[in-house]
Structures are given as C-alpha cells and as structure tokens.
C-alpha cells in the first residue's frame, strides 16, 4: 500500500517536472514580457515620452467610441472566416493528394507543397502582385483584385494559401501517417467503401491534426498582419486593414500606445475565448488509443 502511494506521487511529480523546462523558457519569452507590458493599457502613454499617467479603464471605454475600429474588426473576421474554410479544405486536400501517391511521387509532391513556405511575405507579395496584375489581366481581362476593395481580402488569402498551406499540409499528413494501418485493413475486410473508410477512420483519427490546424489557422488569420502589410499595407483605402495592423498603427504610429495596448488585450482575450472553444470542440473528439 505504502509503495503504491509512493509510486503515484512520484508519477505526479514527474508529470510536473516534464512540463517545467519548457514552461520556464515560455515564461522568459512570452509570459514575463506580457505581464511587464500589460499596465500600459491602463495609461495614456504615447509610446514616446518617458512618463505617463494611469487613466483607469478609459482606453477600454474609448474602444466603444472609436468609429475607426469597426472596419478592421470586420476585415479580421472576414479573413478568419474565409481563411479557415479555404485553408482547411485546401491543406487537407493537399495532404490526401500527397498521401495517395506512391512513395517517390509523394515525396516530390510534398516537397513542392513545402517550398513556398520558405518565401518571405515580401517576396510572396512581389510574385503575386505581378500574377494578379499581368497574368489575371491578360488571361481573364480583369483588373488586379488587390486594387479592388471587394476582392482584396480573398486575393490576399489566396497568396496566404500558396505561402503557408504547406505547414498545415504537413500536420495533416503526419496525422494521416499516424493512423494505424490495420484499421484500414480491418475495414477493407468488412467491405467498407473509400468514402466510408474516410468518414469512419480517417476523419475521427485526424482530430488531433484538426484541433491544431483549425484552431491555429483561425487565430492566425484573426491576427493577419505581415502578408497584408506587404501586399497592400491595408489598402486600398483601408479595405484590408486588419485589427492587428490597426493595433500596430496605434502602438507605433499614432502615438496612442496605451490605447493600442488596450485594443490588443481585448482582441487577444477574444481570440483566447474563441480559440479555446474551437480547441475544446476538437480535443473532446480526439480518440485516445
């Protein structure tokens, strides 16, 4: 009996110790800086002067009076909605395509899908600005969607798909590879169709990949920043200005660092709630072997 209890506490202790080193690094890079900066949201700091005054919740109240914040919020939500749907379908499709080929071809396909990931946002923007301006004009006779307020967001998302689908493709792909092969064999003996196998084996066992990809794609599109900045700088006329860009402008350009920090905090809180809900939805469905 005594031995048993000793074992349990030791396992528990081990569980914490396993987490510790990573957590300490995490504290150093994210947690501590985050808490060091949080008080700025309650000040009138302009980002330049050495001193500032505490203003309580004024910055948070100010958000409701800020008429300019509506468009960035809307844009970020549109980014997230289209981005998640298109991104998930696209990268899952890519992973399945790569998986459907025999070893050598599959390797080639995966490498091709992965290479664009290595291009910076600036260079991606350069190539795609050209494709939109010249290729679209010559092939379809339409003007560049980047110059059109209604089409600019989907156009940037398409650039993003080219540039970063490789990441989710890889996660889905390793998810596919993690599925025990004998499950498929058993299903084949039972006479299941391809569709049935996909629905009853692939999808459920891919849930860990879904929880990662969907959650992170959602929040990364909500925080869309770099690609948009390189492609349009938020234009034309603010039609692609996202909330992250708006926060950046307030923090470093408009000399409203306190306000920018407050918006960032509220926005982060919103992302955390949403991300947690989505993550929980998938985590619950993860199958433990």
């Amino acid at each position: 009996m005594k031995k048993r209890r000793g074992h349990v506490t030791a396992t528990k202790l081990a569980a914490y110790l396993f987490l510790l080193p990573g957590f300490l690094f995490f504290c150093f890079s994210i947690l501590i800086p985050f808490f060091m900066g949080i008080h700025i949201a309650f000040t009138d700091w302009n980002g330049i002067n050495y001193d500032y005054n505490y203003v309580g919740f004024q910055n948070f109240i100010g958000m409701f009076k800020d008429q300019r914040i509506a468009q960035p919020i809307r844009n970020s939500l549109v980014f997230a909605l289209i981005g998640v749907v298109a991104g998930t379908v696209f990268s899952l499709g890519m992973a399945l395509l790569a998986n459907s080929r025999e070893a050598k071809a599959g390797k080639f396909v995966r490498t091709v899908f992965f290479i664009p990931v290595c291009f910076s946002a600036v260079l991606t923007a350069f190539i795609w600005k050209f494709i939109y301006k010249e290729v679209f004009f010559n092939a379809f006779g339409i003007k560049s969607p980047l110059g059109n307020p209604d089409w600019v967001i989907p156009a940037i998302i398409l650039m993003g798909l080219w540039n970063s689908s490789g990441i989710n493709m890889l996660i889905y792909y390793s998810g596919l590879k993690n599925i025990p092969t004998d499950l498929y064999e058993a299903a084949m003996i039972d006479g299941a169709s391809t569709m049935q196998k996909f629905r009853t084996i692939t999808l459920p066992l891919l849930t860990p990949a879904f929880s990662v990809c969907v959650t992170l794609t959602l929040t990364s599109y909500l925080r869309e920043f770099a690609m948009t900045l390189s492609a349009t700088e938020g234009g034309p006329g603010g039609a692609s200005r996202t909330l992250a860009i708006y926060v950046y402008e307030n923090l470093y350009k408009f000399s409203k660092a306190g306000y920018g920090q407050a918006v960032a905090l509220v926005f982060a809180l919103f992302c955390i709630l949403l991300g947690n809900a989505v993550s929980r939805f998938f985590r619950k469905r993860e199958v433990e072997m």
Binding site: I30, P33, G37, L251, A264, I272, N276
Partner: peptide, 12 residues
C-alpha cells in the same frame, strides 16, 4: 499555451 499563441508580438 494556446492562449499565448493569440498574443500579438507587437505588444511584447
């Protein structure tokens, strides 16, 4: 950990 992924780098 998930929450920390939502923090924009600009404020850090």
């Amino acid at each position: 950990y998930l929450a920390s992924l939502m923090i924009p780098f600009q404020i850090l």
